[in-house]
C-alpha cells in the first residue's frame, strides 16, 4: 500500500529532457503544492513534495524540461532525471577526483551539481543543448 502511494507521488513529475505535457498533467494532480512562474525566456513549474523537497522544473518555449533543481530532503533522482539517471550513477561511481559530499558531473551536455549535508540537499541538473538562447546556468536555482 505504501509502495503504491509513493510510486503515484513519484510519477507526478516530468523528467529532465521530457515534454511539458507531462508537467501539465501533474498540475491537475498536485494543484495544492504547485505553482507556475512565467519568465521571459522559460517557465518554472515549482512543486513542494510531501517528503519535503522544493522541486523546480524549467520548461523552454518549445515545451521541453531543460533543467530541474531541488532543495530540501534528498529527492527521488531516478524519477527527476528520467533517462539521465543511469548516466548520473555511472558518473558518480567513476568520479575521477577526490571529492566528498557534493557532486559535479559534466558530460558535455548533461550537467548535474549537488551539495548539502544530511537532512538538506540542494542541486540542479540541466541539458546544455536544450538551454533556451540567452539563458545562463546561473539562473537555474
Amino acid at each position: 500500500m505504501l509502495a503504491v502511494s509513493l510510486a503515484t507521488a513519484a510519477s507526478a513529475f516530468a523528467a529532465l529532457g521530457g515534454d511539458v505535457s507531462s508537467v501539465q498533467a501533474d498540475q491537475a494532480r498536485l494543484q495544492a503544492s504547485e505553482r507556475i512562474i512565467p519568465t521571459q525566456k522559460y517557465t518554472v513549474h515549482e512543486m513542494q513534495t510531501a517528503r519535503g523537497t522544493l522541486i523546480r522544473q524549467f520548461v523552454s518555449p518549445e515545451g521541453t524540461v531543460f533543467a530541474v533543481s531541488w532543495q530540501g530532503s534528498a529527492p527521488d533522482l531516478e524519477q527527476l532525471l528520467g533517462s539521465y539517471f543511469d548516466q548520473y550513477v555511472q558518473a558518480v561511481q567513476a568520479q575521477p577526483t577526490r571529492r566528498a559530499r557534493g557532486i559535479h558531473i559534466d558530460t558535455g551536455d548533461f550537467v548535474l551539481e549537488s551539495g548539502g549535508h544530511m537532512r538538506f540537499v540542494a542541486g540542479r541538473a540541466f541539458l546544455r543543448s536544450k538551454l533556451p538562447s540567452g539563458v545562463s546556468s546561473d539562473q537555474l536555482r
Binding site: R99, G102, H104, I105, D106, D138
Partner: peptide
C-alpha cells in the same frame, strides 16, 4: 573536504580540467 561554493561565473574561479572535475 573543501570550500564548495557558487560557480565559475560568480566567483571568476575556473573549473579544473576533467581529471580534477569538481
Amino acid at each position: 573536504n573543501a570550500y564548495f561554493f557558487l560557480d565559475t561565473s560568480t566567483t571568476g574561479l575556473p573549473d579544473c580540467p576533467s581529471s580534477e572535475s569538481g
